[in-house]
Nucleic acid binder design. Structure first.
Lengths: 141, 141
DNA sequence: ATGTATGCAAAACATTTGCACCTGG
DNA sequence: CCAGGTGCAAATGTTTTGCATACAT
């Protein structure tokens, strides 16, 4: 019994082929961050006949179950990543769309302090740093 | 000659009625943060016959001209605010959608430091803190 | 068996665009 | 006058949904 099956059961989700396959794609893909469309294409590449609507549904369920996190890049385009339990924020390359992760305790603390100052009971936060990655600076593209 | 006319000319934009009206709405509205739809409805309320497509075009031009900034809230919904030259980030109430602003030097510095560490030439960043505002905690809604 | 999940096509949503007409300078 | 701006409707891109069928337990 593979780990993935247990993950799904634990999440209260029936173990179905589309769910297993989507999970597998997320695990084996070279890219840690994938859009629903990316996952859909990857499934087609492996010969799976799974509808795009199902990919969206499955990813949304996975998000609810805490198996993946959804990032909202520049308004109107979401990408998903396998949840590893460790909170982190993202750096995005505006040229090649590479996504890197980071975590900074100082920023985390300041955010809590600011919410408190403003009388907000903080629920979450989203931080994206945009820039040109090392590779793209070198390639000058 | 009103201030708004000069703003538009300085931005290289012809002074047209739709542009003046949109700018006026942004200036006189109770809400500092408005979506294109909000602006459109406010225009209708004042009896102006301006198309939604034009509102989008005008707001996008204003953004390009530096007259307004566009915020991308939770992926797939943009709001605009008059640009006042002072950079700031946002706190959003998940209950009542109130938007508050803040600016934290420590966070700004850390972001630059992180980009540098990762070899990124930082172009911009977006930071949103979500939570429940003081009023909504009191009202318990 | 039976309640869920899936596939497909259509709907929804925010935003953009093509094009004929109108307007500001 | 004429480049640029506008209104309308249609197109866009992403995500969601309705419904009949298929599947997991």
């Amino acid at each position: 019994m593979s780990m993935e099956r247990q993950d799904l059961r634990k999440a209260g989700l029936k173990v179905t082929l589309p769910r297993l396959k989507v999970l597998e794609i997320l695990e084996v893909s070279d890219h840690r961050h994938m859009s629903a469309e990316d996952v859909y294409k990857a499934l087609l590449d492996t010969g799976e006949e799974i509808g795009l609507a199902t990919v969206y549904r499955v990813l949304t369920q996975f998000e609810g179950a805490g198996l993946v996190s959804r990032l909202s890049i520049d308004g109107g385009h979401a990408v998903f990543e396998l949840e590893d339990g460790a909170h982190h924020d993202h750096l995005l390359c505006v040229k090649c769309n590479r996504i890197e992760e980071f975590m900074d305790e100082v920023i985390e603390e300041r955010q809590h302090a600011i919410a408190k100052e403003k009388g907000f009971q903080m629920t979450e936060h989203s931080l994206y740093i945009y820039g040109i990655c090392k590779q793209c600076q070198k390639d000058n593209n």
